[in-house]
Amino acid sequence: MSAPEASSALGLRLPATEPTAQPAVPTIPWYTRHAVTLGSLAFGVAFLLTWQLLPPALGVPSYIIPTVSDLIAEAGRMAARERLIYHFASTFFIGSIGFIVGSLLGAAIGYVLGMSTLLEKILSPYLLGLQIAPKVAFAPLFIMWLGYNAWPKLIVTILVVFFPILVNVLQSMKTVDRDMINLARAYSMSRMQIFWKIEVPASMPALMAGLRIGATLAVIGVTVGELVGGNTGLGYLITFGEGQANTAMVFNAIILLTIIGIVLYGVVAFIEARVLHYIPRAIR
């Protein structure tokens, strides 16, 4: 053998490692790096094309399943004739306000109950009952009490958002590491210092998970409120479209409601990425 060889401690003859030029790592082509994105896009395009072409090919009339181009045309008509922007804005506004108020109330009460074990124990069976009760079924009651205006929709939305956030916050308050609290106590921290410095930050992952759930539920709450009563909002357009056998209108309203949900969810995800920056990405 011509190359010099080094012997290891065990007397094994190992080939000497010589500093050699690093072999060029082949660069990954762009279509491999973005394979997932491209795949998703391709699926979306294929889905829309199928929707556009398949029902007419099978002879399904457009009042049963409107094509994509029917939907776009109807959206234009709705914007011009049915005050679509106004209805969309109303739903978006009430959904957002309901989500924010419901989240604040849910979190606040979750923290209060989390700090008072006694109160939590006394109220927990009722909380469980209310959590299980279908909140949207209260909508007709609120309409009877408050009339055909924005309040019933707002209250249903708040109610729907409230519970998952309360439950998540309460659960996280109950599972804060006791040793962490004892450490703070040993440092002579007050109850409020322990709350603000340990319990509140420790509950953030659970609060954020609750907000994600709440964001999707807010859209359900406001939609049911609008379906049941009133003459405003995308939920109203759904019942109005139903009355006219206008499936395209119903489809459009559903798509816009979904967009509102995505926006709310996106805002939560955006806030979460900033609040929970200290959690490594792989775990989050």
Binding site: D177, D179, L183, Y187, S188, K197, Y278
Partner: peptide, 16 residues
């Protein structure tokens, strides 16, 4: 609890 005692456990108890 008093400020003259420092203690440390098996868990580091660092706030993440």
């Amino acid at each position: 609890p008093n400020p003259s005692v420092g203690f440390m456990l098996q868990k580091d108890l660092l706030l993440p």
